[in-house]
Design a binder for these strands. Sequence first.
DNA 1: TTTGGACCGTAAAACGATTTTGGTCGAAAA
DNA 2: TTTTCGACCAAAATCGTTTTACGGTCCAAA
Lengths: 202, 202
Amino acid sequence: MVENMITGKDDIIRDEILQEAQKLFQQYGVKKTTMEDIAKAMGKGKSTLYYYYCSKEDIFDAVILKEMGEVFNSVKQAVEKATSAEDKLKAFSLTKIKLVQKRINLCKVVKGEMQDTMHCIKHLHAEYINQEVSLVKNILAFGVQNGEFHKSVGRELDMLPEVMVSSLRGLEQDLFVNARLAKLEPRLDTIMGILIRGLKNK
Amino acid sequence: MVENMITGKDDIIRDEILQEAQKLFQQYGVKKTTMEDIAKAMGKGKSTLYYYYCSKEDIFDAVILKEMGEVFNSVKQAVEKATSAEDKLKAFSLTKIKLVQKRINLCKVVKGEMQDTMHCIKHLHAEYINQEVSLVKNILAFGVQNGEFHKSVGRELDMLPEVMVSSLRGLEQDLFVNARLAKLEPRLDTIMGILIRGLKNK
DNA sequence: TTTGGACCGTAAAACGATTTTGGTCGAAAA
DNA sequence: TTTTCGACCAAAATCGTTTTACGGTCCAAA
C-alpha cells in the first residue's frame, strides 16, 4: 500500500476491518475466525468485507503486512537512535524480537506455522526476511562508512546481510520456537560481540 | 550403549533389527512402517522384536542414536584432522551438515519433525545439541590453548559454545528446512570468517 | 532363553449424514 | 453510482458410527 495515511472513508473502513480481524485472529486463531465473525464485530454484513477485500486470505495478508510494517517502522526508529553501528545492530535485533513477540499473528508467521492453511505465508515470509536483510545491509554500510567496520565488509554486502540474518535467526528460534526467553540479551550480546569484533576495522 | 563392538549373538540380532528398521523408516516414514514390517524384513516374528526392544519407539530411539553416533564420530575425526581451531570449526560445521543430510531419519529429528508421534524426540534433540555444544567447546578451548583465540574466550566457555551452535543452526535451517543447498560453503565461510576474526587473539 | 502366531484393546481410518463457512448474487439503501 | 446486506450455493468441515489396522501381550513350542 502506497499511502500510509488513512484518507478516504473507504480507507477508514478497510482499516477497521483489519483491526477487528487482527483482534479475532489473535484471540481465536485464523481457522476459528469466520468472515461472519469479522463482519459482526464491526456491525456490518459479510458481503461488505468482500467489497473491500478479495478473500479471507487477502484480509489475513493485509493484517500481517500491517503488523510487519509496525514492527519494522519501530525497529528503524530504534536503529536510527543508536549512534554506532554496533549499537544499531543490537537495537535491530532486540527491538525486532520484542515487538514480534507482542504480535501473535505475525509471530506465528515468523515461526513458520499455518503453512497448510494460508498460501500467502510464503510471500509474507519472504517480505519479512527482505526487510531484515535490508536493515542489516544499511547498518553494515553505515559501519563501513564511519570507519567502524573494515572496508572489506563493503565488498560483501551482497551475501553478508542475509548470512547474518540467518545466523541471528538461529538464536531467535531458541526463543520463539523453543520458548527459551531467559538469557535473550546475554546470548545476543555474546554473538553480537564476536560478530562485531570480526567486522571491526583494525 | 556402553559397548560399541557387537559381541554376542543377541547384539547381532539387535543390530539387525536396527538396520532393517532404519531402512524402512527411511523409505516409508515411521508412521507407515509397522512392527510387522520390520519383523518380516528380517524373516522373524513380531514378538521377537519385543524380546530385544521395549517398544516401537524404543527401536526408533535406538536408530536415531545410532545415526547420531555415526555422524558425530565422523565429525570428530574430521575435526581432529584439522590443525587450526579455525579449520576445526569449519570441518565441524561442513562435515556435520553433509552427514546429517544423508540420514533421512536423523535429518527429520534435527528439523524438529514428528514431535506429535514420537515422545523421545525431545531427548534426542537435547542429545544432538549436547554433542554439538561439546564439540564446539572443545574446539574453542583448543583455540585458546594454542593462542589462536583470545583468552577471554576461555572465560565464556559456559555460554559461548551453545550460542555459536544456535547461530550456526540459523544457517542450517536455511538449508535443511528451506532447501537452499546452493551457497552452503560460501555462506558458512562468510559467517565463520567473521566469527573467527571476532574470537582471534590480537 | 529365544521364538512365533493367536489374540486383545485401542487408535485410526472409512463412511455417510449433517452442518458450517467462504464466496457470490441481485436488490435495496445511501 | 457506490455501498450495503441477507439469501443462496457449493464445497469443506464436522460428527457419529462402524470397520480395520496395529502396537503390544500371552503362552506354548523350540
